[in-house]
Design a protein around this nucleic acid. Structure first.
Length: 583
DNA sequence: GAACGCTGCGCG
DNA sequence: AAAGCGCGCAGCGTTC
């Protein structure tokens, strides 16, 4: 079992904090003990001197603080990219902007001073844009404001104290500090993944596009194959100038051809027999490929063999990450062909199986569901209990339970699922009922659902809105807690990966002809994350070790959340040179 | 010509 | 088989 270093507890010696505040022309760092009393005078530096100051403090080890410092700062997106650019990493942080939002919103800290105050700049602050994606910086003054306040005027120490006070005064300080640590570790990981970038071959990307669409057309022209398919559709519908990209005119054309359709969605069209349908579905695929991930996308988002998504930690209400620009969380499987490891390197691609129902089993302490998931595929495990008869049925039923299906095949299977797993099903039903009563619900570690907006006064509309909000809160507890598991998984893994260091491998220089950018060098590092799936880019010789660490981290994350209530978190792990071969 | 809502589809 | 969760993004079509 790997040590869990990102949380700073439960077994470590007292941590030492390094509280980093902006000054007019640089920064100051105040070291503090666990009691939040200053240790020595602050170190002050100008902007250029910050990396070397951080470096020297990172290296500092004292009898009181054998572990690394936890850096406390207003906003990882404002500090960390430049430290990474200088070749530095830090081990742990407390991101006050992200954690402020959690603490202000959590039912666990509703009585704290922090929650009682009016909105201020901390609540208004948004993540800084990544350096490369901010061309406006050429024209405007550099953005040194934080939620409307000059960055140098932000009271970092005061905010940290207020947050610590809120956490320690809550009924479940352990849960909230786990969440705060995981969210902050997520902020570091997100910045590091953007810095490292996902290896991306523009050449292979072009090959995929050319095979599907024909050669790249000149600016303004349409790819030859796409246009050919459009003409096929248009002729089959007797409408030569048809533009299938217009849903309105396509629907009209389909109806004029005598087809009884409600919409132009692919799944609806699939069930229709007509010569236009096959080419139309083909057209939709190709058109989607070109507009979403075509040559223009590659030009815009791939630089120097890397795709650098801008991750937005906590960007989703549930705590899932979002991304802005480039659609990083929706990269089609088809285009993952272009994701290839550097020479001498490979990928460890790991996908966690059925995280949401497993987390549900842990939260509800549903022994039967946990047992069904033991060791392998949860859906098959459910079939083995005879609760449902096929894997597909089990999957459909479980998804329906977590999304709140009310009609159709999924809803029909619910009684069977409830009979087999009453405890788990009751857990999500209670979350739904709370939402219908307009009450908030919490994830396992205390992230709390927002208040619903205005409610309709008309009775049936109010009922509909209630059901809808109930489906949201039902899913919130599951999706949000799964996000907590995933962040813990990554954070633990990150801590373990950093132990595979050059120091252990004096000949490591020979491993990788083309090393990753500093500070990664020859070290395995995370390069991609999508909700329950991670990609580690690693020197080939470390791949086996990395795969083991990935599995161990999944197990450790499960224990971190649910203690000795045994819930398995099995992974599918692949060592592959191309991301498309990961599954 | 910018801003916005709608439709549709990619991902989990 | 085609609804029930969470997103981001592109293109269309309307509005200001």
């Amino acid at each position: 079992m790997p040590a869990v270093s990102f949380t700073g507890q439960p077994s470590e010696r007292p941590p030492m904090y390094a509280v980093l505040s902006a000054t007019r022309d640089g920064a100051s760092v105040q070291l503090m003990g666990r009691d939040l009393q200053p240790v020595g005078p602050p170190d002050v530096t100008d902007r250029d001197g910050l990396p070397s100051l951080v470096h020297s403090l990172n290296d500092r080890r004292t009898a009181d603080s054998p572990t690394s410092l936890r850096w406390v700062w207003a906003d990882t997106t404002r500090w960390y990219p430049s430290l990474l650019a200088a070749g530095l990493r830090i081990e742990r942080c407390h991101d006050l902007r992200l954690t402020r939002r959690i603490i202000r919103g959590s039912s666990l800290t509703a009585d704290s001073h922090l929650a009682g105050r009016g909105e201020d700049h901390w609540d208004r602050a948004t993540p800084a844009s990544p350096p490369a994606a901010a061309p406006e910086a050429l024209f405007d003054a550099p953005d040194d404001t934080f939620g409307g306040l000059a960055f140098a005027d932000v009271d970092v120490l005061g905010e940290f104290a207020a947050q610590q006070d809120a956490i320690s005064g809550s009924p479940s300080p352990r849960r909230l500090s786990m969440l705060v640590a995981a969210e902050s570790a997520g902020a570091l990981i997100a910045a590091e993944m953007s810095h490292a970038g996902l290896p991306w071959s523009a050449q292979l990307h072009d090959a995929v596009l050319t095979e599907a669409l024909g050669p790249r057309p000149r600016l303004g022209d349409r790819p030859a194959i796409l246009e050919d398919v459009r003409i096929e559709v248009a002729q089959a519908l007797g409408n030569p100038s048809l533009n299938p990209d217009s849903a309105t005119s396509l629907l009209r054309a389909l109806r004029e051809a005598g087809l009884d359709v409600e919409s132009t969605r692919s799944w609806e069209l699939q069930r229709i027999e007509h010569p236009a349908i096959e080419p139309l579905l083909r057209y939709k695929k190709l058109s989607r490929l070109m507009t979403a991930n075509g040559w223009a996308w590659c030009d815009a988002w791939v630089r120097d063999g890397r795709f650098r998504p801008d991750y937005v930690v906590g960007g989703v209400v549930t705590g899932r990450w979002a991304t802005s620009g480039g659609g990083a969380l929706q990269i089609p499987h088809q285009i993952r062909r272009a994701v290839v490891a550097d020479p001498g390197w490979t990928f460890v691609v790991a996908d966690a199986a059925q995280v949401e129902p497993r987390v549900l089993a842990g939260m509800a302490r549903d022994e039967a569901m946990a047992a069904a998931g033991q060791g392998g595929d949860l859906y098959s495990g459910i079939v083995a209990t005879s609760a449902l008869s096929t894997r597909e049925e089990a999957k459909l039923a479980l998804l329906g339970a977590m999304y709140g299906a009310t009609t159709g095949a999924s809803a029909d299977l619910m009684p069977h699922l409830r009979r087999a797993f009453p405890t788990a099903i009751e857990y999500v039903a209670a979350a739904a009922a709370a939402g219908e009563r307009r009450e908030s619900v919490m994830t396992w570690w205390g992230r709390t659902s927002p208040q619903p907006g205005a409610w309709p006064t008309q009775e049936s509309a109010a009922r509909t809105a209630g059901r809808s909000w109930g489906r949201f809160t039902r899913n919130f507890v599951v999706q949000g807690s799964a996000a907590e598991w995933a962040m813990s998984w990554m954070a633990i893994l990150r801590g373990q990966l950093s132990t595979l260091t050059l120091a252990d491998r004096p000949d490591a220089g020979a491993i990788a002809p083309g090393a990753a950018p500093a500070p990664f060098g020859n070290h395995p590092h995370l390069v991609f994350f999508v909700h329950d799936e991670i990609v580690v880019h690693t020197p080939i010789e470390c791949a086996g070790e990395v795969a083991d660490l990935v599995r161990d981290a999944a197990t450790a994350a499960g224990h971190l959340m649910f203690g000795d209530f045994a819930v398995d978190f099995p992974l599918s792990v692949a060592v592959v040179d191309c991301y498309a071969d990961g599954k």
